Computed example of a mutant assay.
Amino acid sequence: MRRTPHWAAQHLAAVRVVLVLTVVVGLLYPLAMTAFAQLPDFRHQAHGSLVTAQGRAVGSSLIGQNFTDAKGNPLIQYFQPRPSAAGNGYDPTASGASNLGPESVVDQLPTAGQPNSGKPSLLTQVCARSLAVGQLEHVDGSRPYCTPDGVGAVLGVYRSGGLTGAVTRVVSLNQACPTKPFLTSYQGVAVQCAKPTEDYSAALTVPVRGNAPANPVVPPDAVTASASGLDPQIGPAYARLQAARVANARGMRVADVLKLVSQYTTGRALGVLGEPGVNVLELNLALDRSHPYPAKEA
């Protein structure tokens, strides 16, 4: 009797392994996990942890969403989430961060006639968001290294010896002409506005702290996006900052709004991991149930 060649036996064994693994890992295992996920204790999570209101899905408890009007303006009756860098904001198909770090302090200024051609630095994004939150909540939105008009307070300083020597020229790198620079002079030299088409790479980058408080009123999670861009929670401090606005819009007492904030605040995982958070969607839905907007007149 002829024996199967050694090379053929090896190939047949490999084919059998592929077929078995395909059935087990590619078919049986997924079906088993799908069936397991439909058990009563897991069905809600398996279907996306959807949150419903009046019989329809309005979001997920795991993914944040914006509460804005058609023009992108914050709705005053709702708590606002933290910023998002996922697509146009909280896009689950584009989850991710901005990938900008602490050295991102100089803007790419837009060219004339093309307002969308520029790109703000991380510092300017933080400054602009802090200013906007301050205006919305009627608090001081100033931050260190930010100008009063909400861009990064960064100078481009030219010296006679390159890195050393007397200052010969100073430019406010993030304030395009004809904007008036946030400083009139630096070490005796007048500060100029920036021209979008000019190259300032030879200048020394000098951030200016300014006189903003060391601990800004607007908390960090109000001005920075999460790593995923989908974080559904904000910190208790940011929620408390918004309480007065929401209470006024809905005709409630601030104390009652703060009680709801506490109710929807979750602690650290396992008591030690992460920070306490407030689920914005669930809190806003609770407000809609208890005090619908617009507020009814007494």
Rank of each mutant, 00 (worst) to 15 (best):
E282A: 11
V105H: 09
G96R: 07
G165Q: 05
P213E: 07
P276S: 07
P220C: 03
P148D: 05
K296Y: 12
R253N: 05
P207Q: 01
S228C: 09
T147H: 02
S98N: 09
A37C: 11
D107T: 02
K195E: 09
A194I: 04
A128V: 03
S262I: 06
G64H: 12
A153H: 12
L123W: 01
S104P: 05
G277P: 06
L270H: 13
L260Q: 08
R268C: 09
L75Q: 15
Y145W: 05
Y200H: 03
V20N: 10
T4A: 10
V154G: 04
G156L: 05
V167R: 03
G134L: 03
P81I: 06
L230D: 01
V139Y: 09
L100Q: 15
R129L: 04
M33S: 11
Q192V: 00
T265N: 05
L27R: 10
A214L: 13
T34P: 00
A53S: 15
A237S: 10
V167G: 08
Q38W: 04
A212K: 02
C193H: 01
L21M: 15
Y90F: 14
L155G: 08
R3I: 08
Y145A: 01
I63E: 13
C127R: 02
G64F: 07
T205I: 14
G72Y: 12
P220R: 12
A13N: 13
A14I: 09
A237W: 06
F182L: 00
T184A: 12
A85Q: 08
L258Y: 00
P232G: 01
L273C: 03
D41R: 15
A53L: 14
V24D: 02
A132F: 08
V126C: 02
P115W: 07
A153F: 13
G162M: 01
P148S: 07
L136K: 11
P220D: 12
P213D: 04
A269K: 13
A243V: 08
V218A: 14
L241M: 05
R129M: 01
Q114W: 01
P292N: 14
T68N: 10
G229P: 03
S104M: 09
Q65L: 04
R253K: 12
F67E: 06
G59L: 10
T184S: 09
G274K: 06
G156K: 09
V106G: 00
L281P: 06
S49Q: 13
G210Q: 00
L28V: 15
A112T: 11
R43G: 08
L258R: 05
V218D: 12
L21I: 13
Y90P: 04
Q38M: 06
S61I: 11
Q125M: 11
T179M: 05
P148V: 10
S228N: 09
P236V: 08
G165P: 01
L173N: 03
A8L: 15
K180Y: 00
S226D: 15
R3G: 06
G156M: 08
A94D: 03
G101A: 12
P81M: 06
V154T: 04
Q263R: 11
A243R: 05
V51T: 14
A97M: 00
V105N: 10
S228Q: 13
G72I: 10
P276I: 13
H291A: 15
V51M: 10
P216I: 10
N215R: 12
A94V: 06
P213G: 07
L273N: 09
G101N: 13
V189H: 02
V24A: 14
E198P: 00
D231I: 02
A97D: 13
L241Q: 04
A57D: 14
T265L: 07
F79V: 08
G152M: 04
